[in-house]
């Protein structure tokens, strides 16, 4: 199957993605209201009536998913982007079930499994309602929270299952951009976990439980480095393809997160010249999510009256 029609449409859609020059103009705005007005001019029409950041960004996500559904017959190819929401919903469902409270708006949209199904499965302890990659982790995480009252371990189990599901989906995808995205997402998450564990002097058993296997990192070596020190984690990274990440990690975690996003964007840019595979559509999806993240950083900065320079430090590279 080719995606010639869909890619031709994506080329047009790429023109509405925000550029670095536009972001500079957005940062230069004096107030949050001015930012909304500028975004409205750029086609974020909901910015005019929507003053809430989350609602505004959610509207952008809704539009992107609706557009992808229009272009691709089988949206299950994009499940790799939904797993983070699935496992977030699982965490929320377990916490709701264990605390026996009703809280609204805790679930994320755009998931591969309905949040209601996840909640029912956890509430009724019927994990057969969940897909295989989630069922076992759901049960373990629920037991950890309900019996041992260990919220951190509950999160660790779910986060690891999410990373494993993403990596598996990437491996099974017949698209190199999805595979690259999945691998990099898991590797970056592992690096962050290892660095945090090293800084907090977590025991080896905890680190091993938290790290998920991936192809570009040797988890045994990373885990061993994390049990020693933060410098050992950086030293190990310098021997891998993520050697540049070590410098960013030494600066701060937010700089490392910025490096991860830039690393992905830099490597998917070649999809702008690919005309007949799923790659450019996946790349657009990643670029749009990156754009939403950047707009959130700027708008939050403006709302909290952060200095322009400190907002600029957090900016990511743009796809176009």
């Amino acid at each position: 199957m080719d995606y010639i029609f869909a890619v031709a449409r994506i080329r047009y859609k790429e023109m509405s993605l925000l550029t670095s020059q536009f972001l500079e103009r957005l940062i230069a705005c004096e107030t949050y209201k001015e930012c909304l007005s500028l975004l409205n001019e750029k086609g974020w029409t909901e910015a005019e009536s929507n003053k809430d950041i989350n609602a505004l960004l959610q509207a952008q996500r809704d539009q992107t998913w609706a557009y992808i559904a229009e272009l691709v017959d089988d949206t299950s190819k994009f499940d790799v982007f939904k797993y983070a929401n699935d496992f977030h919903n699982l965490k929320a469902a377990i916490k709701l079930a264990c605390t026996n409270v009703e809280v609204e708006n805790v679930f994320n949209y755009h998931s591969s499994i309905s949040p209601d199904v996840i909640y029912q499965a956890v509430k009724q302890q019927d994990y057969s309602l969940l897909p295989e990659y989630m069922a076992s982790a759901a049960q373990k995480a629920y037991d950890e929270l309900s019996i041992n009252k260990d919220g951190q371990m509950c999160d660790v189990i779910i986060d690891k299952a999410a990373l494993e599901a993403i990596l598996k989906a990437g491996g099974e995808a017949d698209d190199e951009v999805i595979a690259f995205y999945a691998e990099t997402t898991v590797a970056c998450a592992d690096i962050k976990i290892a660095a945090r564990c090293a800084k907090m002097s977590k025991p080896a058993s905890f680190i091993t439980q938290a790290l998920a296997e991936c192809n570009t990192l040797n988890i045994a070596e990373l885990s061993s480095a994390a049990t020693k020190s933060f410098d050992d984690v950086c030293a190990y990274l310098s021997t891998t393809i993520y050697s540049e990440a070590a410098n960013a990690l030494r600066s701060s975690f937010s700089e490392f997160e910025c490096w991860c996003d830039n690393y992905i964007i830099e490597r998917i840019r070649e999809q702008k010249y690919n005309s007949d595979t799923l790659g450019p559509i996946v790349a657009y999806m990643i670029a749009k999510e990156n754009e939403i993240k950047v707009v959130k950083i700027i708008l939050s900065g403006k709302l909290n009256e952060l200095k322009t320079e400190s907002i600029r430090e957090r900016l990511r590279q743009m796809y176009v």
Binding site: I4, F5, A8
Partner: peptide, 12 residues
């Protein structure tokens, strides 16, 4: 092949 791309362009 060119027709599919052309249809994509003309859609928008």
């Amino acid at each position: 092949r060119a027709g599919k791309a052309a249809a994509g362009v003309c859609t928008d």
